[in-house]
């Protein structure tokens, strides 16, 4: 009897478990990518290709950057990423080069790379994990998935937890503050902005701001100055180096009827922090929240 409980029972239990859940057998990894497709790997990936700069950044962040064997032309952060073999840019993908690198996993960015490229890579027999992030709250989960796929579970869990904690504290800090009407400019001639679907709009929301063009379509709409005047933003933001600030402010100074211009609340957020959904987006969010707070301090 004792023999049975000690050896046979556990063996039977494990056996039944394995029959019921074959995919989760030891060493086998299954993750659902952002387009809801199941990705199976027999063992964690050891060689992978990243087709987008934000994915490269996230992989480095969880300590898996050293195993990237191919990356896109714009993967420039951190510095080590610049030395990786380039396999694609905005227009072309070098399929032959990707195959010759023999990756066991390819990371693609659906809206950036395009779904045809993902399909083509799958037809070529490669395993492709598709990433699509539009909300900051999706990042911790993505970090954990990336960790499991690349055998960096503990590091990615730690990074994900700290991201989650910082994000929650930002949300908590700003959720009861006065809402600030915000205009985020991404282009000056013609004036272009972004709608509520964009990650930057999510950051505005987290900081207690309201994107004045949140409900417009498309993702990056052209707008004109009189519409901006009508919505009357209290803060105007854009991304750029601080050297640009003077000339940028000067170009807005004509429109004195806009509250943000009248009260001088025009701010530039350092480039690259908000453009890519990565762990650095939180640093961009810090800037954004600080600037909205400056307006609130002025208003009170």
């Amino acid at each position: 009897m004792r023999l049975f409980t000690l050896f046979v029972f556990p063996i039977i239990t494990v056996g039944i478990f394995c029959i019921l859940f074959p995919a989760t057998a030891i060493g086998d990894i299954t993750e659902v990518d952002d387009l809801k497709r199941e990705i199976n790997l027999p063992v964690p990936a050891k060689r992978f290709v990243s087709l987008a700069p934000n994915i490269t950044e996230l992989l480095f962040h969880i300590g898996a950057g050293g195993n990237i064997v191919g990356a896109d032309e714009f993967s420039n952060y951190p510095d080590e990423a610049k030395r990786i073999t380039r396999v694609n840019n905005h227009a072309l993908v070098n399929y032959e080069l990707i195959l010759s690198l023999q990756p066991d996993l390819v990371f693609a960015w659906s809206s950036g790379n395009g779904y045809e490229i993902v399909q083509r890579l799958r037809k070529l027999g490669l395993t492709v994990f598709v990433v699509e992030v539009t909300k900051l709250s999706q990042i911790p989960k993505l970090l954990k998935k990336l960790g499991r796929l690349t055998d960096k579970t503990s590091e990615s869990n730690r990074v994900a937890a700290s991201f989650y904690k910082k994000l929650q504290s930002l949300i908590e800090l700003h959720k009861n503050k006065k809402k600030v009407k915000t205009f985020y400019q991404i282009w000056d001639d013609p004036i272009m902005t972004l709608n509520g679907e964009h990650l930057i709009s999510d950051v505005i929301k987290i900081c207690g701001g309201v994107n004045i063009f949140a409900t417009s379509t498309p993702l990056v709409p052209r707008v004109n100055i009189e519409t901006i005047m009508k919505f009357d933003p209290e803060v105007i933001l854009s991304s750029g180096a601080q050297e640009r600030l003077v000339s940028w402010k000067k170009s807005w100074s004509r429109w004195k009827n806009i509250t943000a211009v009248k009260s001088g609340h025009l701010y530039l957020i350092p480039p690259d922090l908000l453009q890519r959904p990565t762990n650095r987006t939180l640093d961009g969010a810090d800037y954004m929240c600080k600037y909205l707070d400056q307006y609130r301090a002025f208003g009170s």
Binding site: A91, D188, D189, I191, N224
Partner: peptide, 22 residues
């Protein structure tokens, strides 16, 4: 435009669309 970086590329394509708003 093939060898331009992200920012330049956007600038080129926006410029070619024609624009009276400014």
């Amino acid at each position: 435009s093939y060898f331009a970086d992200n920012e330049m590329l956007r600038q080129i394509s926006v410029w070619q669309m024609g624009n009276l708003s400014t």
